[in-house]
Each structure stands twice: as structure tokens, then as C-alpha cells.
């Protein structure tokens, strides 16, 4: 719901992200998209790739802005450009491209190494959680999410899943959690074999 002409300063944007203001997020998203689109499209990417890189960039900013100690040492625009450039370079390398990115750094470049490292670490955890939930199966995965993420009570869970009472539901949650822990902490859990089904 961004207003057509929402003019915000960099620190207003950051403050908005910190408190999780959706309007500010939308205004921010709208404001800097073209910079990243241009960067990616001018360096052998499609607009779909630009969208992915841009969204990841916003997520990096979002994650870092929510750290209490976060300080922006440059313009927000420079920060976004720098993060996007790093992410896009990484993507190019991953795809086996060796050519250099065409420079367009008129706004300067900021050192975002640490910010991207934090993001990477979070992404790894998220990926691990996603994979272990995926291999957990149903109804376990839904039950675990209902309790630990949606914070439903055991009574609510018992009713939703048709268990006789809260104790029974708790027992089932326990079994599911043990299964999930095994998946999550076992490093080889998600490896699949070369079987043709």
C-alpha cells in the first residue's frame, strides 16, 4: 500500500524496516528496483534474475537493519547497489561465467562483506530447516509448525488433528520433534541416492 509519492529519508526507511512497517517496505522496494534491474540486465541477466537478486538484496538489508548495532555508513542507494552487485557476481560465477561485471559504480561501493556473510549463515539455517521439515512428513511437519511457529496450544492442536486430549497431542509432538531433530542435526540426512523410481 505505498502512497504514490512517499518521500522518506534513508533513516526513515531503516526505522520502518526495523519496526516491520509494510508500507515503508513497499516504498523502499519500489524506489530502488530500477537500479538493480539495470545492473543485472546490463550484465547478461534477465529481468527475472534481476527480480530474484533484488529481493535477496532487500532481504540482506532487512536482516541487517533489524540488528540493534546496525549502522549505515553510506547512502542507502549505495548499500543496495553494493549488495546486489556482490550477489549478482556470485550468481554469475556459480553459472560458470568468467567475464567481469560492467562497472557502473558512480554512486560508490560500500563494504558489505560482513552483511552478506550474516545473510549467508541465516540462509544456511533456513535451508536446513526447510529440508528437515520437508523430509519429516505429514502430519508431523504441520503439527510442529503449529506449535513452535504459530504458537497454538496443545488443546488447539489436539482438536485440529483429532487427538483425544492435550496430553496425547503433546506426546505426538514429542515423537515428531525427535524425528525432526534427527533430520536437522544429522548432516547426511538430505542426501538422496541414485535410485530410479
Amino acid at each position: 500500500m505505498s502512497k504514490p509519492n512517499m518521500q522518506l529519508s534513508d533513516s526513515q526507511f531503516l526505522q520502518g524496516l526495523r519496526v516491520g512497517n509494510n508500507e515503508v517496505l513497499a516504498a523502499l522496494y519500489k524506489k530502488y528496483y530500477n537500479i538493480v534491474l539495470k545492473l543485472v540486465v546490463n550484465n547478461s541477466g534477465t529481468s527475472d534474475a534481476a527480480k530474484d537478486i533484488y529481493q535477496e538484496t532487500i532481504i540482506v538489508l532487512y536482516e541487517n537493519a533489524r540488528k540493534p548495532a546496525f549502522e549505515l555508513n553510506c547512502q542507502l542507494q549505495t548499500y543496495i547497489y553494493s549488495v546486489a552487485k556482490r550477489l549478482w557476481l556470485k550468481q554469475l560465477k556459480k553459472n560458470g561465467h568468467t567475464f567481469l561485471i560492467r562497472e557502473d559504480d558512480e554512486g560508490g561501493i560500500a563494504d558489505v562483506t560482513e552483511d552478506i556473510a550474516l545473510h549467508q549463515q541465516k540462509e544456511n539455517d533456513i535451508e536446513k530447516a526447510a529440508k528437515s521439515l520437508e523430509s519429516l512428513g505429514e502430519p508431523c511437519a504441520t503439527l510442529i509448525k503449529d506449535f513452535y511457529v504459530k504458537k497454538l496450544s496443545m488443546d488447539e492442536i489436539a482438536e485440529k488433528f483429532g487427538y483425544t486430549n492435550a496430553d496425547n497431542a503433546k506426546n505426538q509432538k514429542y515423537k515428531c520433534l525427535q524425528r525432526l531433530k534427527k533430520n536437522f542435526f544429522d548432516k547426511n540426512t538430505v542426501e538422496q541416492s541414485e535410485i530410479e523410481k
Binding site: K122, D125, I126, A129, A130, L133, K145, Y148, F184, F185
Partner: peptide
């Protein structure tokens, strides 16, 4: 584990 589950959901 619980933190990772919540992080996953937020993401």
C-alpha cells in the same frame, strides 16, 4: 532448532 524453524517461517 526452534530458532531455525521460526527463521524459516519469517523468511
Amino acid at each position: 532448532l526452534i530458532a531455525a524453524l521460526n527463521l524459516h517461517n519469517q523468511s
